[in-house]
Simulated scan of single mutants.
Amino acid sequence: MSGTITARVSTSTGRALEGAVMTVMSQAGEQQAIVRADADGALVAADIGTGTYTAVITAEGYQPTARVAVVSGSGALNLGQITAARAGGAPVPATGRWEIDPGHSTIEISVRHFGIATIRGRFGDFTGQIEVAEDIEKSAVIAEIKTASIDTDNRTRDDHLRSDAFFDAEQYPIAEFRASQVRPSTDEAWTLSGTLTLRGTAVPVSLELTYLGEVDDPWGGHRAGFRATGSLQRNDFGISFDDKLISGVAQIGSTATVSLDIQAVRTSS
Rank of each mutant, 00 (worst) to 15 (best):
H104W: 04
I142A: 12
E137D: 15
S139W: 02
T106H: 07
R112S: 12
N78H: 12
G89P: 02
G75A: 05
G128M: 06
T95N: 11
Q129S: 14
N78K: 06
T95P: 09
D101M: 01
G80E: 10
G115C: 00
S139Y: 03
R97K: 14
A148K: 11
H113D: 00
T106V: 14
G96I: 00
S110P: 04
I142F: 09
S110K: 09
S139D: 00
E108A: 15
Q129V: 12
S149F: 02
R120L: 10
F114A: 13
G115A: 02
S110M: 09
I136Q: 09
I100C: 05
K138H: 11
A90G: 12
T127L: 09
H113V: 01
S110G: 11
L161K: 03
P91Q: 04
R120E: 10
T95V: 14
A133N: 04
L161Q: 04
F114S: 12
D135L: 04
I107D: 01
R155M: 13
H104E: 07
I109A: 14
D168M: 03
D168K: 01
I145D: 03
A117C: 07
D158L: 03
P102F: 02
H160N: 07
R120I: 08
F123I: 00
Q171E: 14
S74L: 14
I82E: 05
E134Y: 06
E99L: 13
T83E: 12
R155I: 15
E144Y: 13
L161P: 01
F123D: 00
T156C: 05
A169W: 00
G103H: 11
Q81H: 15
S72R: 15
I136R: 08
G75K: 04
S163N: 01
D151T: 02
I130C: 03
T83K: 13
A133D: 06
I116K: 06
T95W: 06
T152K: 00
F166Q: 06
E108L: 13
V111P: 03
K138S: 13
D168L: 05
A143H: 05
A69H: 06
T95A: 12
I142W: 11
P93L: 05
E144F: 13
R112H: 09
I109P: 05
E170M: 08
L161N: 01
A143P: 04
G75C: 07
A85K: 15
V132P: 02
Q81N: 15
G80L: 07
R162H: 05
A143S: 12
D159M: 11
F123K: 00
G88H: 03
D135V: 05
D168S: 07
T118H: 09
A94S: 13
V71S: 06
R120S: 14
Q81A: 15
S72W: 12
Q171C: 10
A143C: 08
G103F: 11
S163W: 03
R97Q: 14
D164H: 10
T147H: 01
S72L: 14
Q129L: 13
V68P: 09
D135N: 11
V92F: 09
A90I: 06
R86E: 08
F126R: 00
F166G: 03
I107K: 00
K138N: 13
R157D: 00
A69K: 08
S105P: 07
D135K: 05
I145H: 06
D125Y: 08
F123Y: 10
P93I: 04
L79W: 08
E134P: 06
A140M: 04
A165D: 15
T83R: 13
N154P: 01
T156K: 12
T127K: 10
E137R: 14
V111M: 10
R162M: 04
V141P: 03
G128K: 04
